[in-house]
Amino acid sequence: MRSYFEETDGDRRRAILDADALTVDLVSALAGDRPLTAQEKVHLDRRREDRGRRFFSDLFYSMTHQYFPPEAAENLWNEVLQHKKGLSKALARNVSTVVATLDYLSNITGDMHSPTLVCETVIEEIVGLSFRDGLTGLFNHSYFSEQMDLEVSRFIRYGIPVSLMMIDIDDFKGVNDSFGHQEGDRILNVLGTALMRAARESDTCCRYGGEEFAVILPMTDMSIASRIAARVHVAMVTETAGPRKVTVSVGVASCCELTRSYRDLVRKADAALYQAKRKGKNRVEISTVDRTVPPCAKSPYDRTNLMHSHAHNRSAYPNPPARSC
């Protein structure tokens, strides 16, 4: 599905952390540095079919973390393989694909001016840290803004639904004042873990700032988002343990015909959260503006297919218990 949309460098950096990420070792094996296993061949064939010409851009990004457009990357890959063959013959030994790539891009084409040797695991760690909040391990505010902008842009262009939850710990200042900031940090950590457990695998859980969390729900309309919000609310209140009960208030909103940027959706969810606070806290409040737009006729997916594509995530959780709002 990713290949139907414009990709950002953030998309490419996030792909480094995926379970099926294209590793340097796998790219090297594809180039002949070692034999490919049967499973690796299947994986590469599927990825090439799914990604099309972007597959060659992926090869270079895995080795250099620099983006090369698909229209140029395929020819460049063949040139690198020829360069690798020439170097190996001249040195009478196999020159690894990474070495041949860096030499070609540095000394032949000049596309890389100052390459640096860094272990792949270190890159993964750096990328992961750049996206994460240090206390809770959730995604941070910068990642939230980037991902929200991407999801809302997809809604505006293709009509793909997206919803947002804003979650605030009730009376958190009193917790810090009465029990100290260490206890406050512990509660933030516990609630962050509870949030991750209650959300779906496809959702993006973030620490928005201070005692506020946010959850981006891609391909999700208001009816489904409200059920997920009810489950998240119950989980976060139930999971909290310590010297006092801690509750949360939740505001939920979905993109609608008035949505022009991700900030519009944030304002809607914030307004719903404010209403939850006004009505007594410890509750879920749904945005009163919900004039959603049907998917664009040119979209490669209709709304039914989009919702079915995430059915396995939703079915993993029972319906939340009925509650009075």
Rank of each mutant, 00 (worst) to 15 (best):
C256L: 01
G10S: 12
V27K: 01
P295K: 00
K281Y: 06
V95R: 06
A230W: 10
R303L: 09
R186W: 01
M148R: 01
H233D: 02
H43G: 08
C256Y: 12
V246D: 05
M63F: 09
A15I: 01
V266I: 15
P35L: 06
M148H: 00
K84P: 10
L91M: 11
P161N: 06
R34D: 00
W77F: 15
G192H: 09
P295I: 04
F56M: 01
P70W: 11
H310A: 06
M165P: 03
G32S: 05
P218T: 03
H181D: 03
L191G: 05
A198T: 01
K268E: 13
P115F: 02
A272I: 05
L217R: 00
N107C: 05
L30S: 09
R244Q: 14
P318S: 10
V175F: 08
I169C: 11
K245T: 15
L273A: 08
G242A: 07
E212H: 08
L306P: 05
S3F: 12
G180Q: 07
D11K: 08
I187R: 09
N75Y: 13
C119N: 14
G128I: 07
A271G: 06
D9N: 13
D149N: 14
D111S: 11
T292D: 01
N78A: 09
T292L: 06
D103T: 13
D133M: 03
G184C: 03
I216R: 00
E183Y: 15
D18C: 10
Y274W: 05
T247K: 03
L30P: 01
D149R: 15
A194H: 03
R51P: 02
A230N: 12
P295N: 10
Y262L: 01
I169Y: 08
R283V: 07
H65T: 09
D221G: 11
I160W: 11
V162Y: 09
K84V: 04
Q182L: 15
L150C: 08
E146L: 13
L91T: 02
D149I: 04
P320L: 07
N78P: 00
T288A: 13
D20I: 04
Y104M: 04
V250Y: 00
D290A: 12
F155P: 02
R260E: 13
I167V: 15
E6N: 10
S153Y: 07
P69V: 00
C325A: 14
L138F: 03
A316E: 08
A316T: 03
R47E: 07
R291N: 12
Y262Q: 11
M196S: 14
S324A: 12
S315D: 03
E285A: 12
K89W: 08
S3C: 11
D45H: 06
D103H: 15
R227E: 14
K279V: 08
L44Q: 00
L273M: 06
D185E: 08
N189L: 12
R227Y: 05
K279G: 13
G192I: 04
Y317F: 14
Q82P: 01
D270T: 05
V234P: 03
L17I: 04
R267D: 11
V232E: 00
A72S: 11
G52E: 07
V246P: 02
P35E: 12
A29Y: 02
L135E: 02
T204K: 11
D177C: 06
E74R: 15
H83T: 00
E49A: 15
K85W: 03
G52F: 07
A29V: 05
A194D: 06
